[in-house]
Structures are given as C-alpha cells and as structure tokens.
C-alpha cells in the first residue's frame, strides 16, 4: 500500500459512518445510501490519488460530493416517475433489527420529521447534533459565517421541534375514538 492509499484509508475509516448516515437521512433507504456512499468515496479517491494536497478539508469535500450525489439521485428519480406512471413504489425491506427497533420508537418520529425539513435545516442538524461537527467546520462546508450557521441551527431546531409536536398532536387526535362524539 503506497502513501496515498494509506492516507485515503485513514480518511475513509474516519468518515464512512458520518457520510453514510448523512446520505441515509436524506434518501431513507439502506441500499441507495450504500450506493451513493461508495460513489462518494470513489469520486473522492479519484481526486485524491492525483493530488491529495489539493483536498484541504476532506470531510467538507466528502459532504459536498454526497450532497451533489443526493441531488442527482432525486433528479433522476423524478424523471423516472414522470416517465412511468404505473411504476410501483420501491419497497424497502428493512430487515435490520436495529431499524425495526427505530421504527417502533420516538426516534422514528424524529427521523421522519428530520427528513421533512428543508435541506439546509436538515444538514445543519445532522452535522451539529448527530455527526458532532464544530460550528466552524459547518461554516466552512456551507461557506457561511459562524454566526449565520448558529442562527440557521437555532431556526432548524425550532422548526424540527414544532414539526414533532405537530405530528404528535396529530397522532393523539387520530387515537381519539370516533364513537365518543
């Protein structure tokens, strides 16, 4: 293994979980997340092997590729849906025990609401509270000031809380028996 391979291997090991999670929250499918995640690292490696000094901030670079790939994925998906009306929805088997547990808990509610947020809010919440990135790092990725990131983060969190409370209210309403009226 040469020097570039060793360096890339370190980057891969440090960031694979985060990038996978980041994509997974956006696409909500293990298989698609795996495909897009491997594509992200492959593109990174192609750039890295030619000149690894060119990549100043590997996590920022990886997140940028992942975002672009997710956008492309949804664009492609939209086209496919437009072409075929009868196209059956892809059933996600979700055999994983871990995911089954998530489905039956509060976490599933949070995950569903997180997926419903607009991209900017969704990303700052994932980076800050799930991937534990510092504000300065998020500012670099988004190319914004740290203050602007803090404001976005605050708004995103409020938005998510409101959505969760709204969805729980809705759930409570559904639980009330109809014959009581």
């Amino acid at each position: 293994m040469n020097k570039a391979q060793k360096l890339f291997s370190q980057i891969y090991d440090n960031h694979i979980d985060r990038i996978y999670r980041f994509i997974f929250f956006k696409v909500n499918s293990r298989e698609i997340a795996e495909d897009l995640c491997s594509e992200t690292f492959l593109r990174c490696w192609e750039k890295f092997k030619n000149n690894h000094q060119e990549i100043e901030n590997p996590p920022a670079f990886l997140y940028r590729i992942a975002r672009n790939l997710v956008t492309d994925h949804y664009r492609e998906k939209a086209k496919a849906q437009f072409v075929s009306i009868d196209c059956a929805p892809i059933i996600d088997p979700r055999n994983d025990l871990e995911e089954k547990v998530l489905l039956n808990s509060d976490l599933e509610t949070i995950k569903a609401n997180l997926a419903g947020l607009k991209d900017e809010y969704q990303e700052v919440i994932i980076w800050r509270y799930i991937d534990d990135l510092p504000i300065s790092e998020i500012a670099k990725i988004l190319d914004k000031s740290e203050g602007a990131v803090r404001v976005t983060l605050h708004r995103a969190l409020n938005n998510l809380r409101n959505r969760i409370s709204d969805s729980s209210l809705q759930l409570d309403c559904n639980k009330i028996p109809r014959n009581s009226s």
Binding site: Q5, I16, D17, W45, D106, L107, L160
Partner: peptide, 29 residues
C-alpha cells in the same frame, strides 16, 4: 430533542460492506 438526535448515531453501515467498499475503491486505482 438534542439527546434524542444524538441517539440517531447508532445508525451505521454494515461492517462487511464498509470493508469491501474500501477494497473495491483502492483496487480501482
């Protein structure tokens, strides 16, 4: 809410997929 969000860290890729993907990427070189 933040505590619950942090719990979402348990979502991780499969270990064998992680290993094989790395091998594939480095082999492509």
């Amino acid at each position: 809410l933040i505590a619950k969000l942090k719990e979402l860290r348990q979502i991780k890729p499969k270990e064998n997929w992680v290993f094989l993907t790395k091998q594939e990427i480095l082999k492509s070189r």
